[in-house]
Design a protein around this nucleic acid. Structure first.
Lengths: 339, 339
DNA sequence: TATTGGCACTCAGTGCAGGTGAGTGCCAAC
DNA sequence: GTTGGCACTCACCTGCACTGAGTGCCAATA
């Protein structure tokens, strides 16, 4: 059972280790933090912490380093929930406020977050399952090539090229467009997909083939709304933060395999403060056992949440990263909730 | 003056050094390449090559390493212009042939190129200055929020949100849409922008304010067509290929600052074979002095070219990378030229 | 009982010395 | 022009002693 002061010692070790990147010894602690006790006392506490597997000594006679379990305890109980500086808040508002459209908002958000934290930042696209179809447009690019454009009231636009086997008649295109529009516009993503499924059979025979092609394209676009995407920024921070370059390889790989990150995102649940962390070996299944992920939800509409966060070495500054992630998520929620 | 065999020696050194990552000595060369002469003879040739600054010895008594100048000579005169294997060609055709739309084509291309070369791959978006406006759509998202969508015959779609100060009348939206459509549809990017510039003044007074907002948005979208973008993939290859992790930091940074790469792309000119290379210190101005770039043009329409290429350590396999870049660029030209 | 100073011990890191070997430059001979 | 021989250089490895930061343990203390 670790004493009150023992926890303070753990907190000090986490702080100093994150700052200095070097194992921290009992003497350093009494020098830097005013504990009012001697180094020997700290050593006794450290022995207990080590027994509890909260810290570990890399070598028989070197300072201590927090274990994953130590970081976990720190994050859950000890980390300061300090707010961002007002200058930082202002930066967030100003930088995000200038956005043009959804793509722009998210790309600004991810760059901002990576600059605030000096880590790799990730932002998940909203899923918009509650969004409804606002407009379907069919444009003839070439005699046998159409472009189907889908617009929703969430402001997102999807496009897809449709190739036909034979050249199509402009009036046919128009009739198909109207039919598809009638079936889909005003419905939610899921409803529209269902309605389009059976539509082609109800068309005049000459239009059925074209109708089938276009309906399939639009259904494919609707499916895209469920399929998650990520934007990311700041991967250069990996090379700055990490000391061993071999350890950045799996991380860079994971960043390219967005599927992995999306699954990780999906598994995390925010705590009472709206932020959650996956630490070190908790990510072992994803090949990221020396990496931590700090994540928060943001909301685009009632019931529609997506996530954003930062990825960095297990030895990261959890306090400030959690604060930044939380602040950005809140501001993003406010910004996107306006519409 | 370097002899015929001297150049063969340089070629052997480049080959072996790229493969082994270690300075190559005279003995290794006579063992691996059937030169039919003794090591001492090779040493004489190497002394000449060193005098010409084509190779250099990292330490007084170690094998030789090509200099940037050596790589340059190798690329310009010695590298085999060997075609891809038929299996690789097939992979290109199959993988790219499945594409859905332009975004998909480019994202597949960049992934393919990074897999073929094991380097970071870059693909520049086509500029489409010859493209013409096919359709302008205006969708009401909220009482005072519109979405302007621009579609060109090159199959690209641009979107932008327009905020109005006061709620707008649906019929006004429709009239503005028709007016803008009449002015822009059928014209090229540049012509449409010019036509829209003065349009609002010709509208009925009550529509002028809305017309100005929307016209500006569309002009902004048109401007986007000139502004270049890059897609990239395979940055994890940096951590695999590079031996020093400090050297990957500036590269990762450059990858995030697309402007830098675009400027680099712009400065390069393809040679007779359609491929060009920037080697090592030739990129010093961009902080990439230990990095080489292999680039080729691809064509989307007569007079419309963009570029793609790979980025990697100076010590890269130029022969196969140039072959891959060239093949992919050719196939992409064929694929996009079809329309 | 908790804290403290003292002390022996451990071990990573550093600097030094010697040995090894891959590779070179030079030269005389072919 | 090519070759074998040879002395020379220097990165790299090994073993060794030394140093110092840090620990664990213990007896003394408040």
């Amino acid at each position: 059972m670790v004493s009150e002061r023992g926890l303070d010692v753990l907190k000090a070790i986490v702080h100093d280790y994150v700052a200095s990147r070097e194992p921290v010894g009992s003497k350093t602690i009494v020098e830097r933090h005013a504990f009012g006790v001697s180094a020997a006392t700290i050593r006794n506490d450290m022995a207990l912490l080590e027994e509890e597997e909260l810290i570990v000594a890399p070598h028989t006679s070197s300072g201590r380093v927090p274990t994953d379990k130590g970081y976990r305890l720190f994050v859950d109980q000890l980390a300061d929930r300090r707010p961002l500086s007002s200058a930082q808040r202002l930066a967030i508002e100003q930088f995000l406020g200038e956005s043009i459209d959804l793509d722009d908002v998210l790309s600004r958000t991810v760059r901002l977050l990576s600059q605030l934290t000096n880590q790799v930042a990730l932002v998940q696209y909203p899923s918009f399952t509650n969004a409804s179809v606002r407009h379907v447009e069919l444009v003839t690019l070439a005699p046998s090539r159409l472009l189907a454009v889908l617009i929703t009231d969430s402001g997102r636009v999807e496009q897809r090229i449709v190739e036909t086997v034979t050249p199509v008649d402009p009036s046919d295109v128009d009739r198909v467009k109207v039919a598809i529009g009638d079936a889909a516009v005003g419905r939610t993503i899921a409803d529209a997909a269902a309605a389009l499924e059976g539509l082609p059979d109800d068309l005049d025979v000459p239009l059925q083939q074209l109708g089938r092609l276009v309906a399939d394209a639009v259904i494919g676009q609707l499916g895209h709304y469920r399929q998650d995407r990520l934007v990311l920024a700041g991967s250069a921070n990996l090379a700055r933060t990490e000391d061993d370059f071999r350890s950045i390889f799996p991380v860079l790989e994971a960043l390219e395999q967005q599927v992995v990150l999306l699954r990780l995102f999906g598994e995390m649940q925010s705590d009472a403060f709206g932020v959650s962390a996956r630490i070190g070996r908790e990510n072992a299944a994803y090949g990221l056992s020396e990496t931590s992920l700090v994540v928060s939800d943001y909301t685009t509409a009632p019931g529609e949440t997506a996530r954003l966060g930062v990825l960095g070495p297990t030895r990261m500054d959890y306090s400030s990263n959690m604060a930044a992630v939380r602040a950005v998520a809140r501001y993003l929620t406010r910004l996107l909730g306006e519409s």
